[in-house]
Amino acid sequence: MAKWSMVIDLEKCVACQACSIACRFENNTPVVAPEQAEMGRAICWNDVFPLPISSTEETGEYPNVTTRYITRPCMHCENPPCTKVCPVGATFINEEGIVEQNYTRCIGCRFCTVACPYGVRYFNWFEPQWEAPLDEHLNPDRVEGRGVLEGPAVRPRGVVEKCTYCIHRLAKARARAGAEGREFRPDEYVPACVQTCTGKARFFGDLEDPNSAVSQLAKSTRAFRLLEEVGTHPKTIYLREG
């Protein structure tokens, strides 16, 4: 069984936000009005933002200033604090290590959103809306099963949503391999952000496979995980600059 993982090389990342845009269109993330965004209600599964060098230190005084950016999808923790607290099992970690979110079961209690230390979970405060002509270009993909609705399927109001490592792409790649009557290869599946990354700073693959790019990069001395001290064991791994 694969363990899907993403490696983000901050040395190569130029903070162009292409991953954010790709994610938005791939996953039908609703757009919110500017005043709503100002209230902190923007939905951005793959966020890009400046990172202070340390929480106690400013980013310097001119001319000695440093600007660092970080891009942040879901960490897909091995020990996710969000799935633990879900009262109905609407969010759970599957056997391939992806933390899923089932829109049809979620009751909107927002326990997972307060439990996640990374803030990767978003809530639909209103019915999602798209202005024309955006609404004509929604991604028709969806992962749907008995009582399950995930991926880019348009979310109803009042549920939580989050990055799924483009789980519908995995489903599609598997289906394609099946239709062609061959074994599915892990390199057939990448999330939209990885595919789009301008600086080729993102890598995706199977952490169980010792020869995969992510396994190799995870061994790098530059590799680190966000908030390692919290004990969540993220599978989204970063490579330090320099």
């Binding site: 633990k84 879900c86 009262p87 109905v88 609407a90 079961r105 009751i107 209690c109 927002r110 326990f111």
Partner: peptide, 19 residues
């Protein structure tokens, strides 16, 4: 406080005692 009060019975149907 629930976002989907219409789904409150999910707590009975799918309740997880780990929560």
């Amino acid at each position: 406080d629930m976002g989907r009060p219409d789904r409150v019975l999910n707590i009975m149907f799918y309740g997880r005692f780990q929560s």
